[in-house]
Simulated scan of single mutants.
Amino acid sequence: MAVVDTLIDAVAANPGLTIILVVLLALVFGAYLFIRRIVVSAAEGYDQGRR
Score class of each variant (00 low, 15 high):
M1S: 08
M1T: 05
M1R: 03
M1D: 11
A2C: 08
V3A: 14
V3M: 14
V4M: 03
D5W: 05
D5M: 07
D5A: 07
D5R: 09
T6Q: 12
T6N: 12
L7P: 03
L7W: 12
I8V: 15
D9H: 08
D9L: 14
D9S: 12
A10H: 02
V11K: 13
V11G: 07
V11E: 08
V11A: 13
A12Y: 05
N14D: 14
N14F: 14
G16A: 07
G16S: 07
G16N: 07
G16C: 04
G16E: 08
L17M: 14
T18R: 00
I19G: 02
I19L: 02
I20F: 13
L21K: 08
L21H: 05
L21Q: 09
V22Q: 02
V22Y: 00
L25V: 04
A26L: 12
V28S: 02
G30N: 09
A31Y: 08
Y32D: 15
Y32A: 15
L33F: 01
F34Q: 11
I35G: 01
I35T: 05
I35K: 03
R36M: 09
R37A: 10
I38F: 08
I38E: 11
I38R: 13
S41I: 07
S41L: 13
S41Y: 08
S41F: 09
A42N: 15
A43R: 08
E44V: 10
E44D: 13
E44L: 09
E44K: 06
E44R: 06
D47K: 06
D47A: 06
Q48H: 12
G49D: 03
R50F: 15
R50M: 15
R51V: 09
R51M: 11
